[in-house]
Amino acid sequence: MNATQTIAIIGASGNMGGAIAKSLVKGNYNLLLQASQNEKVTGLVSELVAINPKASVEAIDCSFEASWEADIIILAVPYTAEKEIAEKIKEVANQKIVISISNPLNETFDGLLTTELSAAEELQLLLPNAKVIKAFNTTFQANLTTPVIKGEMVDAFVAGNDEAAIETVSDLVKTAGFTPIVAGDLTVSRTLEQMQLLLIKLTIKNNYNWHAGWRILLDN
């Protein structure tokens, strides 16, 4: 039995943060739900305890403190807020896994704000001694609640440069109910972020109900 890992979800009051917390609460993790005000996540804390009464879940208002206690840090904040958070947590994120879930969408949802580098690579530059892993960016919030669509388990792509960190995050993705697909090193995040832009554009154009997802079809 592994010593229980502590996961800090930074921005737990957001839709994605809350959905990720719910999908991880059945795993063997201590969850720290960070929001600028504790009141914003008290509802979430009781929801999580209702899902798993044995869960170790706590609200915390300081991203620095949350990251200090964490083994794994999930940045569930919009792309535009990542820089400020990264500066705050830099010292306590050293050598830790930091999961980048964001898609750097523009205001009209039809393009990306990034140019050459992906959001994940930019985050890695801001946190040079952390192990940045891209994950959960190709999944909609609805997928996190229901990771199976018409009997098919949705794939979740994972990219990063540190092998052990990729393995840990793949386990986490499995706990959340997805099939983890290791897509490659952190530069592959560029493709992953473009993939979700495409899915968002198609969802808007074709009126999918925001419960669409990626799945590689296999003949075996």
Partner: peptide
Amino acid sequence: IKSYLSVKKVRKRQFLLQEYD
């Protein structure tokens, strides 16, 4: 050296290592 170190806060009764791990 600092760039290779990690800092961690733990609470009373929290485990850092469990036997067989």
